Computed example of a mutant assay.
Amino acid sequence: MNTSENSNEKNLNHTSPSGNGQAVVVRRLVLSGYYGFKNSGDEAVLKSILTALAEAGAEAGIRIEPIVLSGDPEWTREQYGVEAVHRMKLAEVRRAIKSSDGLISGGGSLLQDATGLGSIPYYLGVMAIARWCGKPTFVYAQGIGPVNRRMFQPFIARAFKKAAYVSVRDDESAMLLRRYGVPQQRIAVVPDPVMGLPALPEADRPEERAADTTPVVGVSVRFWRSDRADLDRVAAALEALARRHQGGVRLRFLPFHHGSDEDASRYVMERLSCDVELAPAHEDPQLMLREVSRCALLIGMRLHSLIYAANQDVPLLGISYDPKIDQFLSRLGQRAGGTTEELDSELFAEHALEIINNTSKWQQSCGGAISQLRRDARKPAQLIVSNLRQ
């Protein structure tokens, strides 16, 4: 691992007393990502990274003290019991980084310009502040791209070449970085952190619904096309599935983003005549993970709805609106059941019906890949903690 970025300013001398009077080594790490916006997928990424860092630190005899850059610091502090500062107050961000032992950038799809021009300069800017403060930067399971504007590419390459550790969540992201000039040997390909998100402890789990033999099909949708033709096709496919399954199915819509996903779910639900219900948009990602675990099948547009399903060994069927969906499915040896541009409702229903009726076959087919992803999901935390011990 490259530690050339470390300088004399790097503060690696934090200690605090333990319960038995012995000094405990403490490492403070700033986490930069799309956190504090109550998006279940991004909050699951944060929860997964915090959990992995705590476990890796405990194994190494180090206490990790996270400082999260958040859109809502008060909510983040309450939700996770960690220190948090406002991500857009750069004086606070600089103070947090200066008091830390390093910066973690990620995970998630941070470096992309599909949703606007601000994301790439912001996240690279935070990494630059860390370098100016003499702190190592660690790239944690990021998904890179799309980067449609070539002007951003050399800045991404420069930041990643100077990072102490770089990991991305798929081969396509690694390929983009190599194309930008980042050496292949500096890039680790790892799973999305959420593959390592633990389930709720038994004592914290909500009560189960009374036994019901009707299979529950979880559905995660989002707005994408402005004309809503994609959601109309999803509604037709779900209606076909409910009609073709003997005894019917119970469609439970799972909103992964407050507000917008709830509205998208209602849009589809209003076009269905079968049994439908809308789950809460849980702020705690582990509660949404529990929702997914109760499904016989998860049909998802949101990437993290599919990752949640794989995490819980729940059969899944993706609807692709972005290459990241196809990239994740390919790691399971699967293909999308359709896209936002093309979705044959009858073929989709037939595919979904086959999965529901042959759950064990699906799990046997994907089980090995899922187990490997779970094992590998915590490698970035272990390598980062190892770097901080030096």
Rank of each mutant, 00 (worst) to 15 (best):
M1D: 14
M1F: 13
S4V: 06
S7Y: 08
S7C: 01
N13M: 14
S18G: 15
R27L: 09
V30D: 03
Y35H: 11
S40D: 12
G41T: 02
E43D: 08
A44I: 02
V45Y: 06
A56L: 08
A58Y: 11
A60W: 08
I62H: 12
R63C: 05
I64A: 11
I67V: 09
V68I: 10
G71F: 07
T76Y: 10
E78A: 15
H86F: 11
R87D: 09
M88G: 09
K89R: 14
R95E: 15
S99W: 11
I104E: 04
G106L: 04
G108K: 06
S119K: 08
S119Y: 09
I120V: 04
Y123H: 10
G134Y: 08
T137D: 06
V139Q: 07
Y140N: 03
G143D: 07
I144F: 09
R150K: 14
R158M: 14
K161G: 13
A164L: 01
P183Q: 03
R186F: 10
D192H: 06
M195Y: 02
G196R: 00
P198S: 02
P201C: 02
E202M: 07
D204N: 05
D204H: 05
A210N: 12
S226L: 07
H245M: 14
G247V: 09
R250N: 14
L254G: 08
F256S: 10
V268F: 00
V268W: 02
M269K: 03
E270Q: 15
E270H: 14
P285H: 08
M288S: 15
E291P: 15
R302Q: 11
L303F: 07
A310H: 04
D313S: 04
L316W: 10
G318E: 01
S330D: 15
Q334R: 13
T340D: 12
E341K: 11
E342I: 13
E354Y: 13
N357F: 11
S360L: 14
K379R: 15
L383H: 09
S386V: 00
R389L: 14
